[in-house]
Simulated scan of single mutants.
Amino acid sequence: MTTKLLMNSLFEFATTAALRWTIGLAVVVGLSACASRPGTETLIVRQEPSKPYQAITVITATDRQRDPTGVGYTAARSSRLQFERFTVAVPVTHKSPDEARSQIQTDPLKKYTVMGRQDITFKDINADKDILIYVHGYNYSFQESLFQAAKVASDGKLSEMPILFSWPSEGSVTGYVADKDAATYARDDLVQLLQDLKKRRTKSRVTLFGHSMGAWLVVEGLRQLKISGQEDVLQRIDQVVLAAPDIDVDLFKRQVDTIGPLARPMIVLSSTDDRALVISSRMGGSRTRIGSLDAADASVQKMIAGDIVKIVDLSALPAPDRTNHNRFIELINALAGSEIGRSTSLMGSLNKGIGLPVGEQLEKALERTPILLP
């Protein structure tokens, strides 16, 4: 075979393989996106809805560029963080767990209403309150991440002030590689946000909550703080929670070895049947993701024994969609004492932490619930 034919054959093979995995990823992620996704128009300020709602205030910190209309944000990358204060009306429902789960699967976050928004600066953030920084995952638009953060705050009855860190994800199922680059691009900005919060010199507690690829961004930010000698900023972080982290196991070990002990062990929320992470693993050379391991796996036992991480296996919880990638939402419902929480084996112990920061709730749940421990 000539060199040219060989190169063409290799190119065809690589292209076919990449297409196969892209289609697989699109199918898996598409399982949870049965209806249309919320567009930029959902960020336009509107009158309060006629149906019952809870008003949630979310601070947004983003390194996305504004769209030409000035209403929304794109996947283009900005050289600086921009801040806004949003007031979002989150629908209040009194449905059964099955009805609520069905609605999540068939009706996306389009029912959320923006009742107010205001451009602010970092100095306008009330740093005296406890803070939850929510870092979204792959394939999220700005508005989707905003409504997801509002939902987390509402469903979890969180005591912290939510800050959404929205990095410039493509918001597309075929944008996985681009999103990894975008998350890397955003790392410095997340570090800057943490540094600025440290400078405020308040006694408020900071929880970092990263989902999926956002968990990778969180851990990379911590690693950057460590290797740059900013121990004081690391110690300012009270708790780190990684939900379905899309991180190669070996890479995660190296990251936590570099970071070292934090104020509390990182909490990893995993599911052994996470379909999205199965596809991510295959795209990454069949390397297992930390978010799909259970606590009994030998590869994480050393980290657990060293009090570096705690693994919470959520596989027994119902999933809000067929990807099994967003079970942390069900855990948040359980923490808040919802009917979904009472219907699981996590019930009683999880419900005793209401009103505490989410990281502390999880710590107390781990202390009281042996089935969560290795």
Score class of each variant (00 low, 15 high):
V241D: 03
D297M: 06
V152H: 13
G137A: 03
E84I: 02
G30V: 01
S169P: 14
D128S: 14
L269W: 04
I247T: 11
E99C: 01
L225H: 01
R342C: 01
V28C: 02
I267S: 02
S169K: 12
E48S: 08
W167S: 07
T74G: 15
K95C: 05
K203D: 15
A244R: 04
E170G: 15
W21Y: 14
S338D: 00
Q103R: 03
K198V: 01
F252W: 02
L197C: 01
R200C: 09
S292Q: 06
V90L: 04
L146V: 06
S338T: 03
G348S: 11
T344P: 01
V92Q: 09
R101W: 10
T60M: 02
E231A: 13
T113Q: 09
D189P: 08
A150Y: 13
G359K: 07
L277Q: 11
L269R: 03
M266C: 08
G353S: 05
E330I: 13
I279N: 07
A336H: 10
I290G: 15
G285V: 07
R368D: 15
A150P: 12
V358L: 03
L5S: 11
R264Q: 08
P318H: 09
K111D: 15
R64D: 04
E360M: 08
K198W: 11
L373T: 13
L217F: 10
P318F: 06
S343A: 07
A334V: 13
T258P: 15
M347Q: 14
A127M: 12
L31I: 01
G214K: 00
Q103D: 05
D238F: 08
A215G: 10
T42F: 06
I56R: 05
T69Q: 06
S141T: 15
V309N: 04
S36G: 12
Y176S: 02
E84M: 13
T22E: 08
S78R: 00
R223K: 11
D63R: 01
G30F: 05
L251Q: 15
D248R: 07
V135T: 08
R66G: 15
G306S: 07
D307W: 04
